[in-house]
Nucleic acid binder design. Structure first.
Lengths: 113, 113
DNA sequence: CGGAATCCCCGACGATACTG
DNA sequence: CAGTATCGTCGGGGATTCCG
């Protein structure tokens, strides 16, 4: 760990994990991927997350500029991904790819060369 | 979230996050990246992680076949990455790359097209 | 409808000490 | 050297209720 560059990596990795990690953030991003959604719509879509948590997560993601909150005239709010938010998708795909390979390995495939 | 594929993605992502997330796992992997290390060596390398935690993390990573524990004759144990463990590096690099971009965006760069 | 306020629980993480 | 044992804390996540 004396290695400076790796120290920095760790910080970056932690940041990203903070964004897509946790129980809900990934799901929220995924749900918004198709199209923008309203609060209640999200709440239903996410298998009954409590409003408190949903609000908190949305705020966090908004702060990180991954999504935007747009009140429409009346009592309605729409959340949708920003370009930056969408740019996460390729990364997610890489992660998923490794994750699948990982599952195979752990389930007992031979792998040691 | 009705989207089946995305549900699966989320699971995979969570798995991966579980591996590189948390406070220490990433650091341990990074530390072992150069070469295998002994328990105490790791402990020192990781800026005073307590033995309890280190043991727990090592066990977890071992279970996931990212590293191997090899007792050498005498009272010494060496931990080193498996091929599978090493295969994480490219992924980490992708994550770091996005993380850096992300920091720029959040720090206030224009980015909306 | 879209939240905010309160209260609570549990699991991750840690400090410290001890052992074969 | 390589752990175990015991205890403690701290905060994320949740249930429930109330509000404009």
């Amino acid at each position: 760990m004396r290695n400076k560059q790796k120290q920095e990596w760790l910080r970056d990795v932690q940041d990203v994990i903070d964004i897509i990690g946790g129980r809900w953030k990934g799901a929220i991003l995924a749900s918004l991927c198709d199209k923008g959604k309203r609060f209640n719509e999200l709440q239903r879509d996410l298998d009954i997350i409590t409003p408190r948590i949903l609000t908190k997560e949305l705020r966090y993601l908004e702060m990180n500029k991954l999504l935007v909150r747009e009140p429409d005239s009346g009592s309605g709010v729409t959340y949708s991904l920003t370009e930056h938010g969408k740019s996460l998708e390729p990364l997610i795909i890489s992660i998923v790819k490794w994750g699948k390979k990982h599952r195979e390995v752990v389930l007992g495939q031979p792998m040691e060369v």
